[in-house]
């Protein structure tokens, strides 16, 4: 495992070397999460690199990325551990043949059952994996706003002491805490208690110059002039009050799609052919098509 970064500038350099361009706010937030051992909650627009930063951090610091994708109805067992029922059944079958054969030669049912609920039959889910890995891991709790609030309360408990209890095995405590990144698209407001536990950073759209840099980092073959033009057009789209405004991911997709069609230039014609890469909602598409010349003009 690599050492912790010396300061914010150092961290920024390390991330850039792995293809992630963090601005000062995000870099400071991550630096503090590492220094203070606190989870970091990233809220923000769609597709602005919230998930990606966690992935990059894992690469940069040689940690294992453990990802818990949240969804409506997710519960503790799906996040923590489950018993491997199929393997347990096989074992039971084997054991009962043996028990029948052994007759009175000291067969111990208790021991047999204990063995069934030992670590061998435990299926690790992300949170158990993270507690076991400690600071060798980056734990990404992605889109936590999709889970329901009971699950949030459960997370809060886990994040306060990195300890969890499996009735059949006992309590497992992390020897050190993993770096925890939570992301939210703000489909609903998270509980204050959970927010209090975390450092908070709002990830907005990058400035135009920065976004051009990001595009060139991710798609090194692209001509800088084209990247600038696409970024300018995307920024005009973001001003349009769309239901789903395009994120950085869409900017990159657009540039990529133009490349595939060998369009070296963004004009009304090539924009019309490729607009689907950047505007994905049907209503939005209508709106954007109607304003196409305005969107691609200048740059």
């Amino acid at each position: 495992m690599r050492d912790r970064p010396a300061d914010v500038a150092h961290l920024t350099e390390l991330l850039a070397a792995d293809g992630y361009l963090a601005d000062r706010g995000l870099a400071t937030a991550v630096f503090l999460a590492l220094s203070l051992d606190r989870p970091l909650l990233l809220e923000g627009e769609v597709g602005v690199g919230k998930t990606e930063i966690a992935k990059t951090l894992a690469t940069t610091f040689g940690r294992k990325l453990i990802r818990l994708q949240c969804y409506e109805g997710i519960d503790a067992s799906q996040a923590l551990y489950e018993w491997d029922y199929a393997r347990q059944m096989l074992q039971i079958r084997a054991m009962s043949t043996r028990a029948a054969d052994a007759l009175d030669s000291g067969y111990d049912e208790d021991a047999a059952v204990d063995a069934l609920f030992g670590p061998k039959f435990l299926i690790e889910r992300p949170l158990l994996a993270a507690v076991r890995a400690g600071d060798a891991a980056v734990l990404l709790i992605d889109e936590v706003d999709r889970a329901d609030d009971e699950f949030e309360a459960f997370l809060l408990e886990l994040l306060s002491d990195f300890q969890l209890t499996i009735p059949e095995i006992g309590t497992i405590t992390a020897s050190s805490s993993p770096l925890v990144i939570l992301t939210s698209n703000r489909t609903r407001e998270l509980h204050d208690a959970l927010k209090r536990r975390c450092l908070y950073h709002w990830v907005g759209y990058p400035g135009a110059a920065r976004e051009v840099e990001i595009v060139l980092t991710r798609e090194p073959g692209v001509a800088p002039a084209l990247a600038r033009k696409v970024v300018a057009a995307v920024n005009r789209l973001r001003e349009l009050d769309l239901a789903k405004p395009p994120g950085v991911a869409e900017t990159i997709d657009w540039v990529r799609t133009l490349g595939v069609l060998r369009a070296g230039e963004l004009d009304e014609h090539s924009a019309l052919d490729t607009l689907g890469a950047v505007v994905k909602d049907r209503d939005d598409l209508e709106l954007a098509q109607a304003r196409l010349s305005e969107i691609v003009s200048g740059g």
């Binding site: 000062r24 706010g25 400071t28 937030a29 204050d192 975390c198 450092l199 908070y200 950073h201």
Partner: peptide, 9 residues
């Protein structure tokens, strides 16, 4: 930035 990440949520 230190204030923003720790005082605002």
């Amino acid at each position: 930035w230190a204030g923003r990440v720790s005082l605002v949520s």
